[in-house]
Nucleic acid binder design. Structure first.
Lengths: 226, 226
DNA sequence: CGATATTTGTGATATGTATCACATAGTCAC
DNA sequence: GTGACTATGTGATACATATCACAAATATCG
């Protein structure tokens, strides 16, 4: 952990930019920055937390193993606030957060965070915008899960990595087949089979965790049709 | 439509209670109240909207027919703000809202709403709390859809109506079997079969849309096990 | 009230995916 | 480098659920 001068931070959130000088000083006093390696736990579900976590750099999964099986609920790419929900409501984390790439996270005291919301409308408005975006995305995830078959879900996942996370047709999957399955709600064997089919059909090229999308249009169609 | 004195409204939201007198006057000037019968459309997806909708009384479904098939994303029981997300982001409704019971809705000018967020931290904080709750619920919906089998989902739906909507073991389903299926992501035939099985096993009593939960504990188990 | 449309139930079948079993490849520790 | 462990691929099978087809019940409307 290291104290940081939030005023000088070049990775401020859209919300933090709205803070005035005094507030930024206060943030500095109640904010600590932590560096995480891939696979490290940022916080665990059911633990009490008095911090809001802001992800400056990196990639994080929100997940739960409530039901004996690990279920990945969402990937969150920096910059982003993590899981305000549980913390704001009753200060219990409803879900776990684990890094999947090297990540830099700020832990902000919840009281200071709440104070900023109450005092600074611009800050609050940015938070509300972000939460609204999350809600739309959650709806889309629900749609996908409820409606699409396994190959549509895998296509979805690949397009998501290519477009939202890596901005590239070529990328290293940060997940095992098992984790991909946990995320999309299908078995690891089915993930293997489907990736194999996509490979055979020259829709993607796969070599272990290395993925190249060869025919994005077709992948998009598969995702759409379910 | 009728103009309403928001100051005197006995159905104010948790957020509106935080408004000061001047703001309530302003709300009155930019708020109209509309009464809906069941099955009426409050707003349609892809339409531009300059209002935030607050549901004072009633029950509403958020849904989409993007993919030719109607998919119900969420039920929203009064009191609640509806779908800030789309409106706040780019003023396009991302989803449709249709009443399923008689509903009283307030249409609030988006600019006034935004002004309140900027000016009144208590108001903003209440909105953030509500959005946070929504997010947790969305995660749970995702978990259910990704993980549970059909009978678990139907059990879920029944418990949801009994506990969250009607607070009673006996209630009239506001949905057809088709709609129940659209909501839980299963076919109408499967819904029929599963309800029939629950009936035979004396877990519920069903007579058309009239449902009585006879063995809540067992239903809970079915929901848990998936 | 009767005619028509809509909703619901139920059997037979098809299909997709989980599960199981096992082989193979890759990774890590010492 | 060797052994142990983990991740991955693949075939056979079982199972859940969609789909189709049709009958029965219910609601709607002139």
């Amino acid at each position: 952990m290291q104290k940081t001068l939030c005023q000088n931070c070049i990775l401020q959130s859209d919300a933090a930019i709205k803070l005035i000088k005094n507030q930024l000083n206060e943030l500095t006093d109640h904010c600590s920055r932590v560096e995480f390696k891939p696979g490290e736990i940022i916080f665990k579900e059911n633990a009490i937390s008095t911090n809001v976590v802001y992800i400056q750099r990196g990639l994080v999964k929100i997940h739960t193993d409530n039901f004996s099986k690990d279920r990945i609920l969402r990937l969150t790419k920096a910059p982003s606030y993590l899981c305000l929900p549980g913390v704001l409501g009753d200060s219990i984390n409803r879900f776990s957060a684990t890094t999947i790439e090297p990540t830099l996270a700020c832990f902000i005291d919840i009281h200071v965070f709440k104070k900023f919301i109450l005092e600074n409308g611009d800050f609050a408005y940015q938070i509300i915008l972000a939460l609204s975006q999350n809600e739309i995305k959650s709806f889309q995830v629900s749609l996908n899960l409820a409606q699409k078959q396994a190959n549509g879900r895998v296509a979805d996942a690949l397009l998501y990595f290519a477009r939202e996370i890596y901005n590239s047709q070529v990328f290293m999957l940060p997940f095992s087949r098992q984790e991909l399955g946990d995320w999309m709600g299908i078995s690891r064997e089915s993930v293997s089979r489907i990736l194999g089919e996509f490979h055979s059909a020259h829709i993607i090229y796969q070599n272990g965790k290395e993925i190249t999308i060869l025919n994005e249009e077709l992948l998009e169609q598969i995702s759409q049709k379910g």
